[in-house]
Structures are given as structure tokens and as C-alpha cells.
Write a protein that binds this DNA or RNA. Structure first.
Length: 266
DNA sequence: AGCATTGTTTCACA
DNA sequence: TTGTGAAACAATGC
């Protein structure tokens, strides 16, 4: 299930395979995934055009279209996956990070599809329908990408309000791309308790958290996904902190299950 | 059976 | 304005 690193893998699939092919047909019949559009609206806007770019900020992806036409926004939600199928039906995707059991050609959960004039197809496969496809997505509301945010930008984000620091990390309008696992990893690296209010963090702690976040993103993107992070395997009952050996604790912060080290993140 | 899940949006309410 | 919590989307794995 995607966080920033998995979405970057999906973006690469778009960039390598889906650009420059004339769109012959669009399946936009899923009114939930394609909300607020009416069935046929996305189809009418895209048929005859080509995708010309594949961009990403945080967990949001979008493609510009020829003409110029509208921007096609794709969000994978928690259960979505981008699949490219060649003219013979052979499929490639952004990595085996989930749905390991999905067989090629299993279209039970295909919620959106582009068919190109050369017979290839681009699919959004999404069992839980938590993903979303829309025209002209409001990506300008997103904060800076978590892999690129500067120390100065990060200090501004942490200087407002009183929310728990983990809640602020998960706020996509503050910093884009941090999900539940990346947030726990960044806080663990910085040795900061996830429930600490942002207004109680020292400047040194904010800067440490910025470095922890950038390092966590780099590790996960380079390793191929959030499963390659350090503290993720320790998110199980009874396991010890992989750095100091103290017991890991579990709780809820911002409504999300949260794990932290009982000693280093007290 | 029951509970949890790596995301987002919307709404009610303090 | 800021923050909190729940609901909805719906499948899967423990």
C-alpha cells in the first residue's frame, strides 16, 4: 500500500510506458473513484489526446495531456496500483509491494482504464476503491514534497499551532508524501515522541526531525518501498527497538496506530 | 468471529 | 482558526 516511495515507482511506470500514445478509449464508469465526474466526462476530455508528462508531489500523480488538454490526476489511496498492459496483455507495475497474489489479467478490481490506439492499456487496479482519478486535481494545495523539503520550509510548517507532531507530519498540506509508516520512521530516527505538541519542540528537535524525514524518504525510495525502512519490522507486539533494544510501545496518534521506542522516544 | 490495515475527504463538534 | 473523532469507501490477512 502506497506511500511516497511506492507512488514514485508508479510514476515511473507512467513515464516509461504510458506517454506519447494516442488515447482511443477510457473506462471511467466507476463513479466513486472518478468522483466528482460524471461517467463519460473524463472519456470525452481525453480521447484523441496523449499523456505528455508524468509528475508527482507527495502521493499525488498527474499527467499533462496534448492539445493542451486537461491534467489527469491519479491518487492510489491506500489500495491502488498502476498497471501497464502491452498489446499482448503482458503487464508491468510499480513493484510487488502488495497484491502479491494478483495474477496477470485479473481485472476484478480494475477501477479505471485508458486504452491506447496501439492496443496497450493503462489500468488503475484498486480493490478497496480508495484511490481516485480526476481531471485538473488541486495539487497546488499540497505542501512541499517530503523528499525535497528544506530545513527552512520544515521549520515554518512546525511553527504553527499545537497539534501532535505526528499529525503535522501526516498533514499533506504541510508536507506532502508522509504516510503512517514514514512518519513513525522519521520520528524514531529523530528520537521524538509522536504525541509531542509541535509548539513544545526545540529548534534542534525540529531540525533533527527534518533530517530524519529526508533520510527515511531516501532510504525507502532507494530500497524500493516503505517495507525497507528500519523501524517498520519492529511494529509488532513484544518486539524491541532495533537500535537500543528497549520495548516498542503501541498507541494511537491522530487516529492512526503508532509505534515508538519506550526509551529513546519517551 | 472479530479486528486491524501503509489514505483521503467530509462532517459534526468543541 | 485549530483540533479531534467518526464515518465512508471495501477487501484482505491474522
Amino acid at each position: 500500500m502506497p506511500e511516497l516511495p511506492e507512488v514514485e515507482s508508479a510514476r515511473l511506470v507512467l513515464e516509461r510506458h504510458a506517454l506519447g500514445r494516442p488515447i482511443a478509449d477510457v473506462d471511467d464508469a466507476d463513479t466513486w473513484v472518478c468522483r466528482p465526474h460524471r461517467p463519460g466526462e473524463i472519456r470525452a476530455a481525453l480521447v484523441g489526446r496523449q499523456l505528455t508528462t508524468a509528475e508527482r508531489r507527495g502521493k499525488s500523480m498527474w499527467c499533462e495531456t496534448s492539445g493542451p488538454g486537461p491534467v489527469l490526476g491519479i491518487h492510489l489511496g491506500m489500495s491502488g496500483k498502476v498497471v501497464f498492459a502491452d498489446a499482448d496483455g503482458r503487464e508491468t507495475d510499480g513493484g510487488d509491494y502488495w497484491q502479491r497474489g494478483r495474477a496477470q489479467g485479473d481485472h476484478r478490481f480494475t477501477r479505471f482504464a485508458l486504452r491506447f490506439s496501439d492496443g496497450t492499456r493503462l489500468l488503475l487496479v484498486d480493490p478497496r476503491r480508495l484511490g481516485r482519478v480526476r481531471l485538473d486535481p488541486p495539487v497546488e494545495r499540497l505542501g512541499p514534497d517530503a523528499g525535497e523539503i528544506t530545513p527552512a520550509q520544515f521549520r515554518v510548517i512546525m511553527a504553527r499551532g499545537t497539534a501532535p507532531v505526528k499529525v503535522r507530519l501526516l498533514d499533506q498540506e504541510a508536507v506532502a508524501g508522509v504516510g503512517n509508516l514514514l512518519a513513525d520512521e522519521a520520528l524514531w530516527r529523530a528520537k521524538i515522541n509522536p504525541a509531542r505538541p509541535v509548539d513544545e519542540l526545540s529548534r534542534a528537535e525540529v531540525d533533527r526531525l527534518h533530517r530524519g524525514l529526508r533520510a527515511a524518504v531516501a532510504q525507502a525510495v532507494g530500497g524500493g518501498g516503505v517495507h525497507t525502512l528500519s523501524v517498520v519490522p519492529a511494529r509488532r507486539p513484544g518486539l524491541a527497538c532495533p537500535r537500543c533494544g528497549a520495548p516498542m510501545l503501541r498507541g494511537k496518534v491522530g487516529g492512526r496506530t503508532t509505534w515508538w521506542c519506550s526509551r529513546e522516544q519517551a
